[in-house]
Amino acid sequence: MNVVLVFLSAAIVNNLVLSYFLGICPFLGVSRRLDTAVNMGLATTFVMTLAAVITWLINNYILIPFDLPFLQNVTFIITIASLVQLVEMFIRKSSPPLYRSLGIYLPLITTNCAILGLTLFEALREYSLIESLFFGLGGGVGFTLALVLMAGMREELEFADVPKALQGAPMTLLIAGMLALAFMGFAGLLSV
């Protein structure tokens, strides 16, 4: 039950993008088209899930026993970076078309603050290994959801009659704000 709560909380109620405002850069940068948004979301979900598990192992078997929690930031960053490298190499070998379509997004994920934020939250809230796994998965699903919703709206926006002063970035930011407001409606659903 707790696992389901952690998953739902990360995916919807405490959505990393829309309620913690993490990962805004890819959220605005890669949400122009639906298909790229889906690809970016899936790649991020994959890395998030792996990162959540591996950083949990590092945190609980190295950092906490040696009383080094102040090294969390640095350790998590290098973990995520090496993980992305590994994933990139693996995809390049196993599926060149996927590599070519994801090519630009993978290095972007290295510096995605949503992933670092996720791993730090996980350490802060002292989740168990299974909870961490679902927290990572939920965070990724939430990120994908935000990206896909945003991309869908921006594609519709192409045909809308936007006032000249608001065209481009201003309108995008307004929409992002409204989407975040809408997600606040989930706040009463559960509190984890």
Binding site: I58, I62, L63, F66, L68, F70, L71, V74, T75, I78
Partner: peptide, 8 residues
Amino acid sequence: SVAAMGGL
């Protein structure tokens, strides 16, 4: 900490 980071 140096050993841990270096080791990692």
